[in-house]
């Protein structure tokens, strides 16, 4: 019942705060990686270069689907902004269901920009079905398709190092986030700006994807404080010998 209560409270908070955030402007702290992402988006359109968005190997049928869905929300926004560029963005996925949604999301971005006729189905790709196979295929895109920035957001393990190394070799900007601890440490060590932990889920809010994204950050903050209070309360109760 505790789980159901958490879900219901979170849902109520998300709904209420979304309505409230529609009327008030978002006030977000600066995250260097996301500032860089904003700048990279603008530069790629001006330069006529391509962005490569890697969504990782997260399957939508298990717990790793959350990061994949966050990546798709970001992709939707990037696709809309870069659809009229000379070199439109390319997205890659390492899971077949995620690959299908990648194509659908890209198409939705083109539709929203009013240029659906420019959409090419091969701009959303499944490059491999195992983590290393996927990384090898994604490296190929970044090296051969006039890519100016690699944005990797999703479920990545240590294989992310292969992508960062390929980006480094070709002087391609790299922005990375993973929901996996090993992936996060690799990205921290090998990229200039990486997103740590729940920052992965903030990309939509920072790219202006809507009030619901900003509201979900506020809900996360509220829930985090509740977790902190619960941890401290539990420790205090244990200290006084009540449990």
């Amino acid at each position: 019942m505790i789980e159901l209560t958490i879900i219901l409270v979170s849902a109520a908070l998300l709904f209420g705060i979304t309505l409230w955030k529609r009327k008030s402007p978002a006030n977000l702290r600066e995250i260097p990686a996301l500032t860089r992402l904003h700048r990279t988006l603008g530069l790629s359109i001006e330069d006529g270069t391509r962005l490569h968005i890697s969504l990782g190997t997260g399957s939508l049928l298990d717990a790793r689907g959350g990061s994949a869905l966050a990546g798709l929300a970001m992709l939707r926004h990037i696709a809309e902004r870069t659809s009229v560029s000379d070199k439109p963005s390319v997205a890659s996925a390492g899971d077949p269901t995620l690959g299908l949604l990648t194509q659908d999301t890209l198409q939705a971005g083109y539709q929203a920009a009013g240029v659906e006729e420019l959409y090419v189905p091969t701009s959303g790709r499944v490059t491999g079905l195992s983590p290393f196979g996927y990384a090898a295929g994604a490296m190929n895109i970044s090296q051969n398709e006039n890519v100016s920035a690699n944005i990797i957001i999703g479920h990545f393990g240590p294989e992310a190092a292969l992508l960062t190394e390929a980006s480094d070799r070709d002087n391609v900007t790299m922005i990375g986030a993973s929901d996996e601890l090993s992936g996060q440490s690799v990205l921290f060590a090998s990229t200039q700006d990486s997103l740590i932990g729940e920052e992965l889920f903030a990309t939509g809010a920072y790219l202006g994807a809507g009030a619901s994204h900003v509201a979900s950050l506020t809900v996360q903050d509220i829930l985090r404080w509740l977790v902190i209070l619960a941890l401290l309360g539990g420790a205090a109760v244990k200290l006084v010998g009540m449990i």
Partner: peptide, 15 residues
């Protein structure tokens, strides 16, 4: 970090 990721996953799923 994992608690943060779990909270992010929860709100993304709810959205």
């Amino acid at each position: 970090i994992l608690i943060g990721v779990a909270l992010g996953t929860l709100t993304t799923g709810l959205r």
